[in-house]
Nucleic acid binder design. Sequence first.
DNA 1: TTGAAAGCGTTACCAC
DNA 2: GTGGTAACGCTTTCAA
Lengths: 351, 351
Amino acid sequence: MKPTLQTVADRVGVSRSTVSNAYSRPDQLSPELRERILDAARELGYSGPNPTARSLRSGRAGAIGVLFTTALSIAFTDPYAVQFLRGLAEVAEDNRTGLLLVPLRDDDEGALEAVRNAAVDGFVVYCVPGWYKAMEAAWARGIPVVNSDHFGSLFVGIDEIASTRAAGEHLMRLGHRRVAIVADYISPDRRTGEVSVPSVEDLGSYVSRERLTGYRDAFAAAGLEWSEVITISAAGNSREHGAAAAAYALDRAPRPTAVVATTDLLALGVLDALAARDLRPGRDVSVIGFDDIPDAAQAHMTTVRQPALDRGRIAGRLLLDPPDDPADRRVVLPTELVVRASTGPASTGSV
Amino acid sequence: MKPTLQTVADRVGVSRSTVSNAYSRPDQLSPELRERILDAARELGYSGPNPTARSLRSGRAGAIGVLFTTALSIAFTDPYAVQFLRGLAEVAEDNRTGLLLVPLRDDDEGALEAVRNAAVDGFVVYCVPGWYKAMEAAWARGIPVVNSDHFGSLFVGIDEIASTRAAGEHLMRLGHRRVAIVADYISPDRRTGEVSVPSVEDLGSYVSRERLTGYRDAFAAAGLEWSEVITISAAGNSREHGAAAAAYALDRAPRPTAVVATTDLLALGVLDALAARDLRPGRDVSVIGFDDIPDAAQAHMTTVRQPALDRGRIAGRLLLDPPDDPADRRVVLPTELVVRASTGPASTGSV
DNA sequence: TTGAAAGCGTTACCAC
DNA sequence: GTGGTAACGCTTTCAA
């Protein structure tokens, strides 16, 4: 039988309230009595108030729920996600709050259950394409939800369209006209391969949709028709999937002079694919990523930098202390096109 | 006012129990009634039983607490930790259990508070040198604690000493006699620099202590005195710290013919330091790491492979379903010395 | 400074 | 198939 407040109270010969005070409001009783209580507790193996009971009573769970795109076991492999989490964790720590990684399993029902059952004070939704039900379940909880990918009441994100438009303009300025785009979650069956995206607006994944839109607009402004652009679906956001997807662009004639990707991880895969074919990035084929993860710099890759750490931090602050002014509840962070060696003028002579 | 079970019960005209059953034991009532209840709930904005109250009643928190070495914001940067977490997350998902990252702040009191206040069913202690108090607090909770670095009742780990002994023997076989070791957490002040470690046994960090012991034993067996070995402290487990520490070995005469490190991250830093000095790994200076993280293979680095993913998985299983037989409560996983190009014969002629 | 009493929102048991 | 009743372990007035 586990000791409870009452056990300790009985032992010392005081009431529950006094023992409770000994832990939660030390100033409410004499130091000696407190010491006696704490001693008794130690002796009885009582390690302090039961967190769950305390939560129930106080109405505070002491944790932030984190909702991920995919299996939580994947989350840690994406450097961008890791940065985001670090920022979030930092703020959580400062507020004596834990981070609860919610297990969103593959089946819909399981995911809903998990969201409804999470003992948390709010949710940070990191990136949940296709999990609208889970998101709705989070909303239904009636606790704050910070969304970084869709527009909700609490939002922290970037101007996705403007960001990729800038990248697209850079490409157009360099004279590229044969372009391929690699994106994840753009084919319904989640396979890797070329896919036709007649209307970007209909894409299910927020991130891919917005980023493709930016490119499309930049291309259009330069007179490049969207229908001429090769769109390739990657089965997931990883370097390997990026390389596999790139093959569909690189192994065709005429070969595109530029291959852009919606994330750095995918773009690094594109670089891998170039290397495997002895093609020189920025000379034979230009490559652009998105995120500016550490490996991007090492690979001398042109990309769009977004402040992942800040996004996490702000998400945490928004959640822990939601501003009253609606205007303050939506934060749009700046991005920056970082030009490195992976982009260069379109080599007109190449086949 | 948030709706509760009672609110819904009143609305439908049934008792609380029936509403509770509608959610938790659907087979206990007629489908029609259940539908009516669920509809009413939706209408009222009731999103299901309060997780905290449910936890209190059922005695199950639905989460595993994860205790990290350092600020949880650091945890994600160590590839080994990430692998471990992935394994753990996998098992947690399968058991509909969340992962609560507990904010161990820098001050002792804050850490204790956090551990005592975490609403979890058990703890996985990943690597907490210097946080003995936090560990004791976890133990005191009276819930299962899986330890991977110290010997507790539930344990999953490797034979640290035998692992590095094998690495040390490899080095001795290659004829190295001027050797430096880079390790983190071996100087009391956590600074980077050469440090004297007269008795390995007294080191505070479990991992560093065990791994140095293995090396020491291997060296001793080959007739190399421990006092002749250069021990260098790294201020933390990162590539940068590894490079900084390596400088203390490489910039002296005579230069060691081998520099080993207690983790791959540190060892990769050593390789960086070699590169900066135009020294060839495996030719001019041999390097050995520990863990076999993905980058190690890419760097052609000799290292000790340990099954990080499995460690995480087993930690989860041990926690969620502690075996009765004490023998099964301690799992020692195999390791393997992976010899790559970063080690070679001691170049007798080098200075 | 201390204690009694009233919940917090749920679930489990046992009658009906 | 359904509904009381009694916990689960704690915190918080409020009165003494």
